[in-house]
Amino acid sequence: MSLRKDPEMEPKPRNGYSRRGFVQGVGLSGAVGVGLLESEAQAQPAGGAKPVGPGEVPITLQINGKPVKLAVEPRVTLLDALRNKLDMTGAKRSCNRGVCGSCTVLMDGKVVDSCCVLAIDAQGKDIQTIEGLSTGPKLDPVMVAFVNNDALQCGFCTPGMVMATKGFLAKNPTPTYEQVEKGFGGNLCRCGTYVGIRKAVLEAAKAARGGKNA
């Protein structure tokens, strides 16, 4: 692993935790998947980053506009923190490897797979989950478009699809059909609801521009 100064590291997260810093700290090089070995956890940190873990560490996440305090092991993903620690189960765990998009949330407005973000690394970011989109009986217009176009069957991938739509439309407010097809390549649906999804995204885009949901 290169120890070069990474511009992405600046400015440092307020609390000093970051994925890169964490990985440097424990001396692993790209082998996070093998888990944390005790000897490595005790190794001296490189580059001055403060080592954390391997036990639970207190963190604060900014979720749907509110600060939420919780304690997680450094290896816990944002997805697992949401689901297992906070009972926010809208984001789903399906492939758990950043392929299917069932775990999609927005981080600082960007579409991310929350299964591929460490919870400790999500600190200081503005995290938006599906729970924040609609709290009462009134649905978000994207959700309405999904219902109208029967863009869901079993519904397991749906919250991820809805969040991906939010992120997609923020960047592409007037998408073409082809842009929709490409833009949703990161969200898979085994029930095969893409026919409805493509229509729903276009309808939601129209609704956001002031048109009515069909």
């Binding site: 689901r83 189960t89 649905l139």
Partner: peptide
């Protein structure tokens, strides 16, 4: 008709087995 469980699924409130805590 639109499916009756569309809103609960689209809003992420539908609880699947994996969501039971």
């Amino acid at each position: 008709l639109s499916r009756l469980d569309g809103p609960i699924k689209a809003s992420g409130r539908a609880k699947f087995s994996q969501d039971i805590n």
